[in-house]
Each structure stands twice: as C-alpha cells, then as structure tokens.
Design a protein around this nucleic acid. Sequence first.
DNA 1: TACCCGAGTCGAAGCGCTTCGACACTCTAT
DNA 2: ATAGAGTGTCGAAGCGCTTCGACTCGGGTA
Lengths: 341, 341
Amino acid sequence: MVTIADVARHAGVATSTVSYVLSGKRTISTDTQERVQRSVRALGYRPNASARALASQRSNVLALVIPLRTGMHVPVMMQFATAVVTTARRFDHDVLLLTADEGPDGLERVAQSSLVDALVVMDIELHDERGPVLRELPMPSVLIGYPDEADGLTCIDLDFVAAGASCVDHLADLGHRSLALLGTPSAVYERQTGFAQRTLTGFAEAAERRGVLGVETPCEHTFDAILTTVEQLLDDHPGITGLVVQNEPIIGPLLDVLRRLGRRVPEDMSLVAICADDVAERQVPQLSSVTIPAERIGAQAVESLITKLEGSDVPGLTLLPPTLTARGSTGPAPHGDLTTA
Amino acid sequence: MVTIADVARHAGVATSTVSYVLSGKRTISTDTQERVQRSVRALGYRPNASARALASQRSNVLALVIPLRTGMHVPVMMQFATAVVTTARRFDHDVLLLTADEGPDGLERVAQSSLVDALVVMDIELHDERGPVLRELPMPSVLIGYPDEADGLTCIDLDFVAAGASCVDHLADLGHRSLALLGTPSAVYERQTGFAQRTLTGFAEAAERRGVLGVETPCEHTFDAILTTVEQLLDDHPGITGLVVQNEPIIGPLLDVLRRLGRRVPEDMSLVAICADDVAERQVPQLSSVTIPAERIGAQAVESLITKLEGSDVPGLTLLPPTLTARGSTGPAPHGDLTTA
DNA sequence: TACCCGAGTCGAAGCGCTTCGACACTCTAT
DNA sequence: ATAGAGTGTCGAAGCGCTTCGACTCGGGTA
C-alpha cells in the first residue's frame, strides 16, 4: 500500500504538505499543489481510512439502524436506506448497517468505539428505549419517526396525523359519511409504532371534526386475514363507502377481496392509500394516495446530520406535510349512503 | 473517552498487558486478567475502532454491495442483507453498506483505503465488470451469484439451473405437457442477470429432456402487463396447463388474472413459483414452490469470507441444491391436455 | 532602512492501539 | 548448584495520518 510518505517523497515535499493539499486546510502554491496531485495519481495513492480517522477523530461513517421486525414494509425501508446511503456519499461519508435487534447496546457499541460519527435511527416507537441512549451519546443522531419524549432529539418524519386527516377530508369532501381505516398488522400497533398510531389519531380526529363515522381495524398480511377483516368490517358497518389503507402489502389482495365481495372501486367503495406513489400507480384502478416521501426523508436526515457534525443547529422536529394525489380509486359517495351515516 | 492507558493505570499494569488480556494473544495470569477486566468494566472502556484498525491492519468491517436496480425484488435482497449483517456480527464484524451504483470504483475505494477487510457482492451479472476488479483487490471477496468467468472468485448461489429443471420435472411428473416460464421483467434478462438466465436454461433443457413444450416470456410488474402477457401466452399456446413463475411481485396479481380468465388453480392450471416460502404460503391456494434460501446464502457468504480472512481456502463455487415443496397450486394435468402437446 | 505581515512550507508531536523483543522469575532436568 | 525452558509482564516502536507551532521569504508600510 502506498502511504502519504511515499507521495511526499515522490513529490519532494513534506507529508504535511501533501496532507494540506488533499484537505485544503492551508494555502499551498498552485505549483506545489499540481506536483502533489501528479504524484498522487502516479502512485495511485488512497489515504488509509483508519489512520485518517485516528488522527482526525472523524471516521466519515454514519450508522444506519434499520428495523427487521414483523409487519414492516420492506420496500419502503429500502427506499429510506437507499436515500441515506446515496446522500451520505454526496457528503463523502459511508454507511454502516446495523439491525435494530442489537438494541440500544448496538448504538453504544458503534458510538463509543468511534466506529461512526453519527447515527440515523429508523422505525421509532412512541416510547422508544433508544431515545435516552441517543441523548447521552457523544455524537449527533437523527431519528426517522419520533417518540413521545422527543426533547433533545432531532426527528424527521412525514406528518402522519395530517396524513390520516387528509384522507378523511378527501373522502368527506366527496360526500362519504362512513369511513374505515384499514391499518397495519396489530403487532405494529402493539409496539406503539409512531407512524401507525399517529395516522390513527389523525383519522379519528378528522372523522370527529367532519362529523362522519370513522372505524379502525388492524389487518394482517395474508389473503384470508384481509378477506375476513373486510367482511367483518362491512358486516358491522354496512354503510361504509370509504376506505383508508395504511398497509402496503395488502393493497393488491384488498382490491381483489373487494371485487370478490362485489364492491366496485370507486363506484361502490372509494379507496385511498398511504403508500409509495409507484405502488399506487401500479394498481387497477390507480389509487388515490398520500405518498410516503421516503427519499426526501432519508436525504433530509443525512443532511441534518452533516449539519450537526459541522457544529450548526437543526430543528428538533421536522414534519413533512402530506400530499394527497387523487387518482381513480376515489369518487363521489354512492347516493344511498347519505342516509346511512 | 477512556483509553487503554487509563485502564492500564487503573489496573496497575502496562498497556500491552491490557491489550493481551483483551485479545488473549499471550498468556496472562488469572489474577491480572481479573484485575484488568474489573478496570475495564469500572471505567466503561471501549477500544477505539480506528486505532485498533490502524495498529492491527484489520478494520473488522465487511462491505456489502447491494443492487438498487429496476426489477429486483426488494424483500429477498433484504433477507440477504439481514443474514449478512447478523452473521457478520456473530463473527464480531460490522457491515458497510454500498450501493451497486458506485460501480467498480466504489469497491476499489473502500478496499484500497482499508475501510473494510473483505467484500460481499450481490446481484452478479453473467459478464460482470466487477469480476476483474475483485480479482485484483488485495482482500478477499465473495459473490452472491456467479459470472461466466468465475475463475479466481469465490461464488455462492442457489443452483438456478437445477431450480428451473425441478419445476419442469414436477409438472411433467404430474402429466403436464405444455409449460410456460413467466420470468422477470425483460430488463433483468437484458443485463444478463445470472439467476434469471440460468433458470431459463434449466427450464428449457428440462423441457427438452422431458419432451414437453416449454415456452418462456418475461413479465413486467404492472397488472396490465401481467394480464396482457398471460392472455398472449394462452392465445399462442392454448394447451398450456403448467406455469413456472420466477417473479415474486407478480404472484398475487397473477392469481387474480388467472381467475379473471376463468382458469382455476390447480384444476385448470398448475402453478409453481420460485420464491421465498412465506410468499408462497401466503397465497390462496398456497403455492408449490422452489424456495430461495436467502438466509442460508447470506450466512454462508459471510462464513466463507471469515474463513478466507483467517487464511484458509474455500471452494470457488458453491451451488445450493434447490428444494421444491409441493403445495396446493399444482395438481394432475387436466385430461384434455394429453392430446394437446 | 527597519519592521511587520501574510503566504507557503516543514518538522514533530500526537491519535489509541497492537506487537515484538527483552527481562525477571519460577520450575524442571541435569 | 546450574543451564534451559517456560510463564508473565513491560517498554517501546510503530501503524499512517492530521495539525500545531515555527520558520523562511518576499513585499508593503512607517
């Protein structure tokens, strides 16, 4: 391996000069700069990451903690991860992949050993045990999602309360008076996952505010579960004409179930999903949806982290406003429904 | 941050002694060992990763290169990634996440800067430009999948040729005489992805060997595309009674399409998929399938890498034999078909 | 002319760890 | 008694980089 000393010798300068050329932290004459750069290229020099990290107290690596839990929708997570890695590279950082099952200890491990400079943590629960740990860690972190006690933490997320509400508003505006939220598997609610809970809140509040019926039910991923859940729902509340779905993997089978039950979308039943745009557009009919801006959130998370690493402040909580795109799956409430609510 | 010197002082020994206690590379009296361990705990000492890496020439980090390309099935990739991370942790290593879009340069970057000790590379094409690079790198690597020129590389994969063949055999054994392979999106074939090509080969060879008709078609992910593809297929080859599907995301909609076309599974049409077990089991009816042992492959990849890091040899190519599990989606060929082939 | 200042460069001191050789013992085998 | 072979421990020399202080050398100012 070629070292900085080799480059210095080749260029006839001190190692510190090479270092300054490469970092730009001191002024170096154009002449010397070029000579050094030529030597770097000639020798194929790559700074040793460990040595650099040791000397500069910066590893240029971010930790990304991803959940590996039941009920999580994998493609969305992957979008986050991709955005994080891509953005990190833009800022000349790499990404260390941690799984959430290492728990709070895993965070301490990578932080206290200076393996990483900062952390991005996904899939935050309302009472997340990692919150206190992150607060004490000697390095910045950003959470995707936010716990109830978010003081002293930097969080970024889609505003799921508003998302839930905007779905209700959209349907209510179309004249629907009885709505249901078809949510994530119950395990996700049970562990108090922020996005699921908050959507629920937004949905319920908006239903109340608009004076419409709003019932909520979790839903597992299997076809049978979907069928049973929907049948039960329509049995208990036959007047329902508007469905809000926050559960990507069931979207396909759900359309199927509705068809099987003889409910046409959107003539008999309007459907609005909270999911990635490409998923919504792939369905027949295309779904009205609130998009999950995974790309933006992931990128934003890294940008905030870099800002913090540079010593500047960032807002404690950033909530991205939801965007609802109306497509073919929502329409005016069928006439009969007006009496039902 | 507490350093090894702090621990040494606290325990009243030399820093080298602390190091040897922690690494076990020299015999240390039980007495001293305990004293040092107590100091370590008392001070909450964590070795600095960069310093350790610099001194020992080992970062204890593996690179994982994942594809971010069109047509790839994300959940399976995630299973690989999870298995890699989990297994790496078992061997006290961490995982650096790279995206394939950094290309061969990305590999050189992390390798030549000693950021990582070894690499796991996923989604190998038949003529993969990273092959030559990996061969030249001063550190071991393992490919998940394998290129045509695999000399000097360590590869591990499911035996997709055998997988394709075993699907044909299963259907032929049930009396089916006209089969179709519903494959990945055409983009995946166009970039000569190993698993897709090899399944095709296995399918075609087995069809020939068994003397049955075997037609092949790629299939995009949208509902419309699936409908059109299947309609076209059955138009061109009305005798087809057996379908092999290698395309996870279309599985749900495909069942739907068949229903819509009036083909009952398995009475009119047998279906065998190449996909993760849980996906197969979630369908109605449950699908006969060849499983993709992502977990095993990921774990195996890391184990091979660790073996290589320890200086031992590992086989150049490991192909895992496919396992076909018969479930409810395959049955005897309908009677009329016997005349059709 | 004497002085100061900024630009450009160098040398050396770490960063926190691993590892090699050396040293001081304590046992056995002579 | 005494060489030889282990044990257990220490000190010091790096690993390859960054960064601080200091130095030199013009050119502008008083």
